[in-house]
């Protein structure tokens, strides 16, 4: 790319591209920072940090409740008579 161009042009190009890279990096950092703060506020308002007990239990439901083991080797299921 820039390496095969005449030296002055190459230099100008790389300086220009660095400029855009910096613009990109800084605006992205700004954007990311603002989004993060906004997300945090949103999560707090939504009650994500309240009642963590329920959060830790949300992976269970009536079909697969707490206290039930939900995975075993296939043969042991077959052995119980209903194998496929």
């Amino acid at each position: 790319m820039a390496h095969n161009l005449p030296p002055q042009l190459g230099e100008a190009l790389s300086r220009a591209s660095m400029f855009f890279v910096f613009i990109f990096i800084w605006s992205f950092a700004l954007f990311a920072g603002i989004t993060m703060v906004w997300l945090l506020a949103w999560a707090v308002r939504r009650g994500e940090f309240q009642n963590l007990r329920d959060a830790s239990r949300m992976i269970f439901d009536d079909g697969e409740p707490i206290g039930e083991v939900t995975d075993r080797f296939p043969e042991s299921i077959k052995a119980s008579g209903e194998g496929r």
Binding site: S56, I59, P65, I66, G67, V69, T70
Partner: peptide
């Protein structure tokens, strides 16, 4: 985080 509690049927030790 999903599989261990889900398979053994116990919630995760500490959400904090």
């Amino acid at each position: 985080y999903y599989l261990i509690p889900k398979v053994i049927g116990k919630p995760i030790h500490s959400y904090h």
